[in-house]
Design a protein around this nucleic acid. Structure first.
Lengths: 70, 70
DNA sequence: CTAAAAATCACATTATAATGTTAGTTCGTG
DNA sequence: CACGAACTAACATTATAATGTGATTTTTAG
């Protein structure tokens, strides 16, 4: 998953939970501006920021060994 | 996976591949200092930086919906 | 044991992420 | 339509990530 895709995944999950950007930003304790940029792929967020958002959305960050695609 | 655990996972994987910090840093195009801090959990790295490292180590960043633990 | 490389660390500098502000645009709902 | 909320966006400021340097400690190979 590329940096840009993380934003897409966050937006998708937020929409699924029917939460607005301002609400999510508030719950995660971050600025709407940052959230907006992440979702649009216009940011290179810190892990901590992604984690705060993920926490609220019930998402989990993982770092797994890639499967070989034959 | 918490921010700190990402560093641990990176170090574990690096050791498994028998690569040194200087070598990995070079391959990923980042500074050894940054790599060292990430591994020790003394940094809050950007997604991009983690991705560069992950790429070299054959790791993949994922953002998955948490499983409920009953 | 010794020498070299790697890892750890502190500190200063530079680059940039995160925020705050403000404003224009789009979307939803009465 | 019309009004408010949400979204998108630009820009300035502040906070901090990333780097560079040099030094110390630890690890490893001979």
């Amino acid at each position: 998953m590329l940096v840009r895709d993380v934003g897409i995944a966050i937006k998708k999950r937020r929409k699924a939970l029917k939460i607005t950007q301002p609400h999510l930003a508030d719950l995660a304790g971050i600025s709407v501006n940052s959230l907006y940029k992440i979702e649009r792929g216009k940011a290179n967020p810190t892990l901590d920021l992604v984690e705060k958002i993920a926490e609220v959305l019930g998402l989990e960050i993982k770092l797994e060994v890639k499967k070989i695609t034959l």
